[in-house]
Design a protein around this nucleic acid. Structure first.
Length: 899
RNA sequence: GGGCGCGUAGCUCAGCGGAAGAGCACCUCCUUGACAUGGAGGGGGUCACAGGUUCGAUCCCUGUCGCGCCCACCA
């Protein structure tokens, strides 16, 4: 017995357990040994995170693909796992320590802190996995991996060591994006540019050998800056070589105010005469462009900031610096950069060294995690030669070995890859993969898989056993994620899984991590596996709230997928996401959408109940091709059509088309027409027809459960189980392969019935007729024969009292033209003749318009000459149809006159 | 500055060379024995604007106006 209502919360858990118990999601099931493999790796969520709508969308789409291909018989691996998320996780644990007023990480030390992080990972690591299960994700959980588990860590070390040995990883001292709050370097991608309204300070730098006079511009040069505090580290002033204003100053020196250092005026193309004053201060240690200028001109790099972005004078450039001015300046030691900015500006102002201050809008780099202003900072870091690794990654996409869907993301990919910069991979954090590099007493570096190997190398190098210290830094989280498609399959070991499931079939991910993740997987996959990591990359966008706003904790508009699942069921959420996903667009998610799809689930449930109440049950071995009843042949035809449509849509990643087609088929074809038309049969006396209809009803229902299963796995599995004794779970049953069911005759006949019923209903509603009314088929004997066959159906669905035929429509009746036949409703006295005439006039006008439009085309010689033959043929048919229709309407109007 | 995309029914969006579509909302009717989380019917759009290509343009091209997003840029 099917329950009266479907209650997702009471079903979903049980169903998921059944899948797991049956091992339905396991890759490499023996019976599929000969099957083609299909694999997807999940974008690993943060291990200590929880499921948000983005995950829900991402996972739903992957699950649709995984379940679809599984049902199509492929050996499916949906590889799950989680990411250690270096900075994010470390920040969470540090915040916890603070909240609990426990000692900070530095105080407790690395080992103890890491113990805490692992404890937190153990505690919360299962959350998101369970949440993915609640969504219905059919991952092979037996293969779950974690980026810091033993195997993956081994892969990370090997990749680092191999790339180092090939010269593709190297250590370099250059400017990095330094986060003064998190006290670590970060990569370019982790920097966000924030529009800021600031100021442009124009500073006067006195020329050497002249007495500074604020009233005499020949005694100084003006430089403009947005960061006055960096002036302490200036080592030159640059002007454009062609700038006539400054040409004669090149080669002279200025005396750096507040410091007293003598610095040269140099000529460099970098200086833009249009910007600021045309002369620019050069601070190689604190600006990326200046760093390059400094290298070209061999300028010293004077650092004036500590790692915490406080002023420091530790740089040797300040060592010999004397003078009262500098003595005063030295008091800034330890002052925060922004406080120092104010003080420096005030002092310059006192000395008339500020030329002017302009308001200035510009973008300022911020750390994406810390949200503080990033400082370009001169440090030793590890880099990956991304330019080199990008080459094959670019070629692979160009050659179509990997395809993006939608295709235009490839442009974005190329743009970035072709301008890729060295990837800074070292982080001054503790949570992550510690870099396998050891240093000798003289700073000599030994990179090796293990400390023992490093020791051995050191001994060889120094000629004796030498103590080494390990590099303290860890690797960027994305370094390990970049290996995900092969590290999860057991690499560097040559596992059977690796050869079977790599390259993976599809990757489904958000556009926001194309650079962070997709590009880097391409680089690493191609380098280490010599093959692309995935064939297709399906890129989706954001899930927004109902009003189109980005969901964010601070705005408080975050819709929790678990809450939606609790309220409406996982299927409703999944179906909503699938129906609304459109390539190139964000999704708006509002409660009405989810409700609508919950209603759809209810509809499906009740359709199944209907069959059960009519004693219909699946018939083993039932062959839809053998059906005799037109109605049944029709629904078989429609089912095959829908299945084909849905199959093709999923194959081409058109999720919303697939879901939409399923929705329309189930609701508007199967429920609205087939079940309604079946009612008279089920209540009738024809035993054979009844038997066949019952069987067909359940056959079609079973096909429906299959085609809906990738989208709505829970309710379909539940109905599958509850409607019949089955050999296997729906999740591992066979996807419909329906051939030989097309039936144009049945299609035409049922189409006529549907049109007739619809036309009658329309008239009834328009004319407000509640009572059952008679129907007269006029003219065509074919029509009356068809009507005779379908009399009961028409009577029931259109609420017709009796059906008769006549040579022409009775006087004063409403006359409908249905596919060229006239159907009359003798309603003399009931209807308003004027209204009926008006209705017919309107129809007539439409027919005339149709004819006119087609005639315009057909009488156009160029159209007939240029248009495709079948188009011209179509137009001619339209012409005929419209003309015939017009004639019938004209007759109808004529008959009306006689009343 | 470079790139990508979007402007179609009140709202959210499909369609993207041959007669304008869906869901929601709205209006009317219906407690008919699967379902009121339902059924039936209906109103509503010069497909942003201006040119062009074409026998034919919502769909292709160019421009304009709006609106997003990504990358680069701390003078």
């Amino acid at each position: 017995m099917i329950d009266k209502t479907y209650q997702p919360s009471q079903v979903e858990g049980r169903i998921y357990q059944a899948w797991e118990k049956a091992g339905a999601f396991r890759a490499g099931r023996p019976e599929r040994a000969g099957a083609k493999p299909y694999s997807i790796v999940i974008p690993p969520p943060n291990v200590t995170g929880s499921l948000h709508m983005g995950h829900a969308l991402n996972s739903t789409l992957q699950d649709i693909l995984a379940r679809f291909e599984r049902m199509r018989g492929r050996d499916v691996l949906w590889q799950p796992g989680t990411d250690h998320a270096g900075i994010a996780t470390q920040m969470v644990v540090e915040r916890q320590l603070m909240e609990r007023q426990q000692p900070g990480r530095r105080k407790m030390g690395r080992a103890e802190f890491l113990k805490r992080v692992w404890a937190w990972k153990e505690e919360s690591g299962g959350t998101i996995i369970n949440q993915l299960k609640r969504l219905g994700a059919s991952c092979d959980w037996s293969r779950e991996r974690f980026t810091m588990d033993e195997g993956l860590s081994r892969a990370v070390l090997k990749v680092f060591v191999d790339l180092y040995r090939e010269g593709l990883i190297y250590k370099d001292k250059r400017l990095v994006n330094w986060d003064p709050k998190l006290l670590t370097a970060i990569s370019d991608l982790e920097v966000v540019q924030v529009e800021t309204r600031g100021h442009l300070w124009h500073l006067r730098y006195p020329l050497e050998g002249k007495t500074f006079d604020p009233a005499d511009p020949s005694t100084f040069i003006v430089v403009a800056t947005t960061r006055p505090e960096t002036m302490l580290g200036d080592t030159a002033v640059a002007v454009h070589p062609d700038d006539e204003r400054y040409k004669k100053l090149v080669g002279q020196n200025v005396i750096l105010p507040l410091v007293g250092r003598k610095i040269p005026i140099i000529a460099d193309d970098y200086s833009d005469p249009e910007k600021g004053s045309g002369a620019v201060k050069i601070t190689p240690a604190h600006d990326f462009n200046d760093f390059e200028v400094g290298k070209r001109h061999n300028l010293p790099q004077v650092n004036v900031l500590t790692v915490e972005a406080k002023i420091t004078f530790a740089d040797e450039a300040f060592a010999g610096q004397g003078g009262a001015d500098f003595a005063e300046t030295k008091k800034l030691e330890g002052t925060d950069r922004f406080a120092a900015r104010k003080q420096i500006v005030a002092r310059l102002e006192e000395k008339s060294l500020i030329d002017k201050i302009e308001p200035h809008g510009h973008v300022v780099p911020h750390g994406d995690r810390s949200n503080v202003v990033i400082e370009p900072f001169l440090t030793d870091q590890w880099y990956v030669n991304a330019r080199e690794l990008a080459k094959p990654a670019i070629a692979a996409v160009r050659d179509g070995k990997t395809t993006f869907i939608p295709k235009n993301w490839e442009t974005t990919y190329f743009n970035w890859m072709e301008n890729i910069q060295p990837w800074c991979i070292s982080r001054q954090l503790w949570w992550g993969h510690q870099i396998p590099a050891w240093y000798g007493p003289d700073g000599k570096v030994f990179v090796a898989l293990t400390e023992t190997e490093a020791q051995a190398a050191a001994e060889k190098h120094y000629g004796k056993a030498t103590p080494l210290t390990r590099d303290e830094d860890v690797l960027d989280t994305w370094f390990s994620s970049a290996l995900w498609p092969f590290s999860t399959l057991g690499w560097p070991d040559r596992t059977p899984e690796l050869s079977r499931f790599y390259p993976t079939s599809a990757l489904v991910t958000g556009f926001d991590i194309i650079f962070f993740w997709v590009a880097r997987m391409m680089m690493m996959g191609l380098y280490f596996m010599k093959e692309v990591p995935f064939q297709d990359v399906y890129i989706h966008r954001l899930v927004r709230d109902a009003s189109g706003a980005k969901m964010s904790k601070s705005k408080g508009n975050v819709v929790d997928p678990l809450g939606v699942i609790d309220q409406y069921g996982a299927d409703a959420l999944r179906f909503t996401l699938a129906r609304n996903v459109a390539p190139g667009h964000d999704i708006r998610l509002g409660p009405p959408d989810v409700e609508n799809n919950r209603n759809f689930a209810t509809k499906l449930w009740n359709a199944a109940r209907f069959a059960e109440m009519n004693e219909a049950a699946s018939v083993a071995g039932f062959d839809p091709k053998a059906a005799k009843e037109t109605l049944n042949r029709w629904i078989a035809h429609e089912t095959a059509k829908a299945a084909r449509e849905i199959t093709e849509a999923i194959e081409s990643y058109k999720f919303s088309e697939a879901a939409g087609a399923a929705y329309r088929f189930v609701w508007n074809i199967y429920c609205d027409w087939y079940l309604e038309l079946a009612k008279p049969v089920l209540l009738g006396a024809d035993g054979a027809a009844k038997t066949e209809t019952r069987a067909m009803m359940c056959w079609a229902r079973d096909e429906i459960l299959k085609i809906l299963h990738p989208f709505m796995p829970f309710i379909t599995e539940e109905l599958w189980g509850v409607t019949a004794k089955r050999d296997a779970l729906l999740a591992v049953s066979q996807w419909p392969k329906l051939e030989g069911l097309a039936d144009d005759k049945a299609d035409a006949e049922i189409g006529w019935v549907i049109d007739l019923v619809t036309a009658i209903r329309s008239v009834r509603a328009e004319m407000n007729i509640n009572a059952n009314i008679p129907l007269v088929l006029a003219g065509g004997s074919a029509a009356s024969k068809t009507a005779e066959r379908w009399a009961e159906f028409i009577k029931r669905l259109a609420r017709v009292s009796e059906i008769s035929s006549a040579t022409s429509a009775p006087q004063g009746s409403v006359q409908l033209v249905v596919r060229g036949e006239v159907a009359a409703l003798p309603l003399k006295g009931v209807i308003d003749l004027a209204a009926e005439r008006a209705r017919l006039d309107k129809e007539m006008a439409k027919a005339d318009a149709d004819i006119k439009r087609v005639d315009a085309k057909l009488s156009n010689e160029k159209f007939v000459a240029n248009a495709k033959e079948e188009i011209v043929e179509e137009e001619k048919e339209k012409r005929e149809e419209a003309a015939a229709r017009k004639a019938k309407i004209a007759e109808a109007l004529e008959r009306l006159k006689g009343v």
